[in-house]
């Protein structure tokens, strides 16, 4: 089986990259091929990178409160392009009431503050197993 490829992405202007980097490193240490976009990516750039890099999953991180707009735009673009084989997860400062809405948009998992790294690694191992 080919190595799992994950794009860790920071949409919008939010500069809080501690979580994204910690998750990127944990996935890398677990044997996942990680591509980190760096900061200040537009949703369009993120989808483009996901296609170019042929990833199996995208992990979106936002702590500024703009997640409902930015994550939705990413999901909309994926839908427009007919991409349904990339698993999208997210993390950041996300109130409980938004979690349900994000899942309805098609986001597979929301990793909120306090999530152990192992939970995130295990989730991705499951994708790889499929």
């Amino acid at each position: 089986m080919a190595k799992l490829r994950v794009l860790v992405a920071k949409p919008g202007l939010d500069g809080h990259d501690r979580g994204a980097k910690v998750v990127a490193r944990a996935l890398r240490d677990a044997g996942v091929e990680v591509i980190y976009t760096g900061l200040h990516q537009t949703p369009e750039q993120i989808v483009e990178a996901a296609i170019q890099e042929d990833v199996d999953a995208i992990g979106l991180s936002c702590l500024s409160g703009a997640h409902m707009t930015l994550f939705k735009t990413v999901m909309d673009i994926l839908k427009e392009k007919g991409i349904d084989d990339i698993v999208v997860t997210c993390g950041g400062i996300i109130p409980d009431e938004d979690v349900t809405k994000l899942k309805e948009m098609g986001i597979a998992a929301v990793f909120g503050p306090g999530t152990p790294l192992q939970t995130i690694v295990d989730f991705h191992r499951k994708i790889a197993g499929k």
Partner: peptide, 22 residues
């Protein structure tokens, strides 16, 4: 908010979703 921190007005594309949040 983030757009202000980056020297953008609220009507800039990069400001999407960020108005008044942080």
């Amino acid at each position: 908010d983030f757009p202000t921190l980056y020297g953008y007005d609220t009507d800039h594309t990069m400001a999407r979703g960020e108005f008044g949040k942080c």
